[in-house]
């Protein structure tokens, strides 16, 4: 059985696409056949992060409209042959997405893939709602600041009431927290919410804390998912996330400053 994962947040710019790319790559690297779909129709980004923007011929909307087959639209990742990308259309908008169409594409993908990662657009409109509707698991990406936390809370409410699992009264969507752009120093100085403050409001299973890191931007610009950068804390943190999602028990790190182990190891590189 394929599992459909939605990466969502409500708020924009918190790291949904970075996370989608990283965990899709992580799952594929672990040997699971994985597809990652860009739901941000009109604001296509995932292809850039995955470094496949020059190989896009057909897109998600073409498949929904029956203008291309799913195999024509899927792009195989150049770093991992277990990973496929289904890009969004840049020339259309979210209205091109239909519940029936998305359902059909996911159903077809589910026959071949173990994991399907849905990269949700920001907001709570059609694109975001369709990205989460079919989900089995939700990765809620949150930055340690109040507006992001509240928006995540709102998304959790939508997951609990408007997802297919909720509508069908099935076992609820499994919700996981990913705290991104976390900076222990700024938490210490009170500029940023700490993990406890966030969990006070969201109380979710924590899948990982991704520290604020320059390597994320570098990786994005290079079109290589940051999880492949084994020298960066962010990359390691995403590896932990994937391992924990797959059931491994790994202690959380990068929560506070004092475990300078990695810092020493990597010469203070963030």
């Amino acid at each position: 059985m394929a599992r459909i994962i939605v990466v969502t947040s409500g708020k924009g710019g918190v790291g949904k696409t970075t996370t989608s790319a990283a965990i899709a790559m992580g799952l594929a690297k672990k040997g699971h056949k994985t597809a990652v779909i860009d739901f941000d129709v009109g604001l296509r980004n995932l292809d850039l992060i995955m470094g496949c923007e020059r190989r896009v011929v057909y897109d998600f909307i073409n498949v929904i409209n029956g203008e291309a087959s799913i195999n024509q639209a899927l792009i195989r990742d150049k770093n991992c042959n277990q990973l496929y990308i289904l890009p969004a259309s840049q020339t259309r908008d979210k209205d091109a997405l239909t519940l029936e169409g998305v359902g059909r594409v996911l159903e077809e993908l589910a026959k071949e893939f173990k994991y399907i990662v849905c990269d949700s657009p920001a907001g709570i409109e059609k694109g975001a709602n369709l990205a989460l509707y079919f989900a089995d698991d939700a990765f809620v990406v949150t930055n340690p600041e109040v507006s992001s936390v509240r928006d995540s809370d709102r998304m959790l409410g939508i997951l609990a009431s408007k997802s297919r699992r909720a509508e069908r009264n099935e076992e609820p969507v499994r919700e996981y927290l990913l705290l991104t752009r976390y900076d222990p120093n700024r938490v210490k100085s009170g500029e940023m919410l700490g993990l406890d403050d966030v969990q006070d409001i969201l109380s979710l299973q924590l899948l990982g804390i991704i520290p604020e890191s320059k390597s994320v931007l570098t990786a994005s610009n290079a079109g290589i998912p940051v999880i492949l950068d084994e020298k960066s804390e962010a990359g390691l943190a995403y590896q932990d996330v994937v391992a924990r999602y797959l059931g491994e028990d790994r202690p959380h790190r990068f929560i506070d400053d004092k475990k300078g182990f990695f810092r020493k190891l990597f010469g203070g590189r963030l």
Binding site: R150, D153, R154, G157, A160, S161, I201, S203
Partner: peptide, 23 residues
């Protein structure tokens, strides 16, 4: 949990065992 943006209306008494979020 009653999340931000959710509304609950009870015609009688209401008992919530989980947190009720802002919003």
């Amino acid at each position: 949990p009653v999340r931000s943006g959710q509304r609950i209306y009870a015609p009688g008494d209401l008992v919530v065992m989980s947190q009720v979020s802002a919003g």
